[in-house]
């Protein structure tokens, strides 16, 4: 499952404006993919753990969350968590095109829908429509 999701995010998050993406698994392992030198994997790894903790904190405060978008001055962090507690985060530049934001939302929706037992790469039409990484 990890390989499938790692491959899926690496392939499909190559959207213009995306700075980095990553996954966090319930066993605390992570996968990081950087598309921008300012977002190196060594710095990203703890981010995904922290991101998973934020979902845990939301849950503790009885705040269910389907999708979360953390907005900073220069970047946005899109995040979602699946029912099997695998969590996904995508950093994108703050001034990305509106269609990119919509694409990322669709991508996260797709991430949540990938079957837990999936062993084959999931087909997505997003990469084709979204273009290459930055």
């Amino acid at each position: 499952m990890k390989q499938v999701l790692n491959r899926w995010i690496a392939n499909h998050a190559r959207v213009p404006g995306v700075l980095a993406c990553g996954l966090h698994y319930p066993d605390r392992t992570v996968f990081s993919q950087s598309m921008n030198v300012a977002y190196p994997p060594i710095v990203l790894d703890p981010v995904w753990r922290c991101l998973a903790d934020t979902f845990s904190v939301f849950h503790h405060h009885r705040i269910p969350s389907e999708f979360v978008r953390w907005q900073y001055q220069d970047a946005h962090l899109y995040a979602a968590i699946r029912s099997d507690n695998i969590c996904c985060g995508i950093f994108v530049v703050q001034d990305a095109d509106t269609s990119v934001h919509a694409t990322l939302r669709r991508l996260l929706r797709e991430f949540k829908a990938i079957p837990a037992t999936s062993s084959a790469p999931v087909q997505s039409g997003l990469a084709a429509s979204a273009g290459g990484g930055r």
């Binding site: 405060h61 705040i63 389907e66 999708f67 907005q71 001055q73 950093f91």
Partner: peptide
């Protein structure tokens, strides 16, 4: 909860050039 959000917002982008925190949208 706000205190948690405030703390986490800083931790999430520690050592990343994301700029200052503005808001978080949580879709339910």
């Amino acid at each position: 909860f706000l205190e948690c959000v405030s703390a986490k917002s800083a931790q999430l982008v520690h050592r990343l050039p994301a700029g200052s925190f503005e808001r978080v949208d949580i879709e339910q």
